[in-house]
């Protein structure tokens, strides 16, 4: 059974510890602008939502990559960017309907959440348990999936889920 990131926005205080830890894993520096998890704040700061890739099943990013630079890690279920293979064409960034794969112009490659190979750094540092790493069949994580399905409302996508 894969594990999945469970995000509970109500616990988030927007402290950005997750962004720092993530960016450290990605670029070796504390640099929220390079993080694959982002906290969105709105309603004047009254609402905070950590947001990252849900590792959706038939991942658009993986499917559309013209050079096979995004592959499935069968142990974690993560869709992982092989930076050495990525040419930086960015087509995945417009294909992913969640906006959770983005281009890093410094490195010339795209970045997304890869679940840190099974020990997500964002979860390690989150002080409020807004981020946890749980069994994917956990009831609550289905809520993320529900959202994913909502974004894939075309009939094709619905069929896609039933395969």
């Amino acid at each position: 059974m894969h594990k999945a990131l469970l995000i509970k926005p109500v616990h988030c205080t927007a402290c950005q510890q997750c962004e720092m830890a993530c960016s450290y894993m990605k670029v070796g520096a504390f640099n929220p602008s390079k993080s694959a998890i982002k906290i969105f704040t709105f309603d004047g700061g009254g609402v905070k939502v950590p947001y990252t890739c849900t590792q959706c099943n038939e991942a658009w990013c993986m499917m559309v990559c013209p050079v096979g630079a995004i592959t499935l890690n069968t142990e974690t279920g993560a869709k992982v960017v092989t930076e050495a293979r990525c040419v930086g064409c960015k087509v995945c960034t417009i294909a992913c309907p969640f906006g959770t794969i983005n281009y890093n112009s410094d490195k010339g490659v795209v970045t997304k959440c890869d679940l840190c190979n099974g020990t997500p750094a964002c979860v390690e540092v989150c002080p409020t348990n807004a981020l946890t790493y749980v069994d994917a069949d956990n009831l609550n994580s289905d809520r993320m999936q529900t959202h994913a399905e909502k974004s894939h409302t075309s009939a094709g996508e619905v069929a896609h889920k039933t395969l």
């Binding site: 417009i94 992913c96 983005n102 974004s151």
Partner: peptide
């Protein structure tokens, strides 16, 4: 701009 572009596609695709 280069961030969150996929969201635009998602919203258009969903026809919501």
């Amino acid at each position: 701009r280069s961030h969150d572009l996929g969201i635009i596609k998602g919203l258009i695709q969903s026809k919501a």
